[in-house]
C-alpha cells in the first residue's frame, strides 16, 4: 500500500514547548514539544509525523462545580489539589495536569493569595509540564493571572484561556513570567486568526501559543469542534502561518450532558468515560495535539488507543518505513 498523500510538503505546524527543566529555569523533569506535523494526524512518517499528542487530566481547586462522577472516583484526592495533581501523573498515567482555578469562578471571589499557594503546591507535587486555567471574569483577570503567572515563574506552563475580548491579562502573564498560552476562538477560523494577530501585537511570540477551537461536546455541537479542527489543520498545511499552531481540545462539558448526568449510577463511570473518550479520540484524529479529560478511566482508555494510531509517529523512534509499498 502506498504511503499517504501529502501535496503540501513543507508546511508544518509550529512547535510549542511546554515545561522547563532546572537547567532552563524551571523544575520539571520533562519538557514536551507539541506540534511539528506536516500532514493530517497520524498519517505522516519520519519528521512529518510531528511530536506525539499529549493527554491531560483536568483537576480543580474548588470542586463545587466538578462532576460528581469524577469526585466519587478520585475520593479524598479532590480535597487535596497537590495530591490530586500528583496522582494524575503517577496513578492515572496522564502526560500532564490541567489545573482549573475554579475557585475564581465563584461570585465575589477575592482570595487571591490562595492562588499562589495552590499553584506552588501543585508545582511541588508534579514533575511534568502543567496547564493552568484562571478566571473568566474580566474584573478579576488582572489580579488572578498575575498571581498564577508569578507563582509559576520559569515553569513555562500553558496558561489559559485568552479570548478575543479578554486576552490582555493572560498574554501579560505569559510574557512577564515566561509561559505559553491557550487562545480560544469558537467555530470560526477567521476569529482564530484575528486573536492570533491581537496576541502578536502584545509581543507574544507565536511559538508560545496553542489554539483551542472547541465549541461543544459529543452530541452537543461536537461536529463543529471536529470540523473546525480539521479545517484549521487543513489551511495550516496549505501554508496559512496564522493557523499553523498546535491545538488543544477539551470537551469540558462532556460530564454535564444529560446522557452522563442521568446515567444509572451502576454504569455512570462507564458512560462518563465513553462520552469523554469518543470526543477526545475524535479530537486527536481531527488534529488536536493536547486532549484533556476529567475521568481517570478515560486517560487509561486513551493511553491504550494512542500507540495503535501513532506507530512511527514519534520522531525519536526509528523512522517508520513506507509500510507496504
Amino acid at each position: 500500500m502506498s504511503e499517504e498523500h501529502n501535496p503540501e510538503q513543507g508546511n508544518r505546524i509550529l512547535e510549542v514547548s511546554l515545561g522547563a527543566t532546572t537547567a532552563e529555569g524551571g523544575t520539571r523533569e520533562r519538557v514536551y514539544t507539541v506540534g511539528g506535523a506536516g500532514t493530517f494526524p497520524f498519517l505522516g512518517a519520519g519528521p512529518a509525523a510531528g511530536h506525539p499528542p499529549r493527554i491531560a487530566l483536568e483537576i480543580c481547586d474548588d470542586t463545587r462545580t466538578w462532576s460528581p462522577i469524577v469526585l466519587r472516583e478520585v475520593g479524598d484526592l479532590a480535597g487535596d489539589t497537590g495530591a490530586w495533581a500528583a496522582a494524575a501523573e503517577t496513578t492515572f498515567g496522564a502526560d500532564m495536569v490541567r489545573l482549573f482555578f475554579t475557585s475564581t469562578r465563584q461570585r465575589g471571589f477575592d482570595d487571591f493569595a490562595s492562588l499562589g499557594t495552590t499553584m506552588e503546591e501543585v508545582i511541588g507535587a508534579t514533575k511534568y509540564p502543567l496547564i493552568v486555567e484562571g478566571s473568566t471574569e474580566p474584573g478579576i483577570d488582572s489580579e488572578v493571572y498575575r498571581r498564577i503567572g508569578e507563582a509559576a515563574e520559569g515553569e513555562r506552563i500553558l496558561l489559559g484561556t485568552a479570548e478575543a475580548d479578554r486576552y490582555r491579562s493572560v498574554a501579560a502573564s505569559a510574557l512577564a513570567y515566561g509561559h505559553a498560552l491557550v487562545a480560544q476562538t469558537p467555530i470560526d477560523i477567521n476569529l482564530a486568526k484575528q486573536l492570533n494577530i491581537l496576541l502578536h501585537e502584545t509581543g507574544l511570540p507565536p511559538e508560545r501559543i496553542v489554539i483551542d477551537p472547541y465549541t461543544g461536546t459529543l452530541g452537543y455541537g461536537f461536529e463543529y469542534s471536529y470540523s473546525v479542527m480539521e479545517r484549521i489543520r487543513s489551511v495550516a498545511l496549505q501554508g496559512d502561518a496564522d493557523l499553523a499552531r498546535p491545538m488543544i481540545s477539551s470537551a469540558i462539558d462532556s460530564l454535564n450532558v444529560k446522557e452522563v448526568r442521568e446515567a444509572d449510577p451502576e454504569t455512570a463511570d462507564e458512560v462518563a468515560i465513553r462520552w469523554e473518550f469518543y470526543a477526545a479520540f475524535s479530537a486527536l484524529v481531527a488534529g488536536a495535539e493536547i486532549v484533556c479529560v476529567r475521568h481517570p478511566g478515560t486517560v487509561a482508555l486513551l493511553r491504550e488507543a494512542l500507540p495503535a494510531l501513532q506507530e512511527g509517529s514519534h520522531p525519536q523512534e526509528e523512522a517508520y518505513g513506507d509500510e507496504s509499498a
Binding site: L218, Y226, T267, E270, R274, Y278, A279, S282
Partner: peptide, 20 residues
C-alpha cells in the same frame, strides 16, 4: 459493545454525518 459505548458511538456518528 456495552450500551455506554454504542450510545457514544451512535452519537458521534450522528454528529459527523450532520450536514455542516
Amino acid at each position: 459493545l456495552a450500551p455506554s459505548s454504542t450510545m457514544a458511538a451512535l452519537t458521534l456518528r450522528q454528529n459527523i454525518y450532520t450536514d455542516p
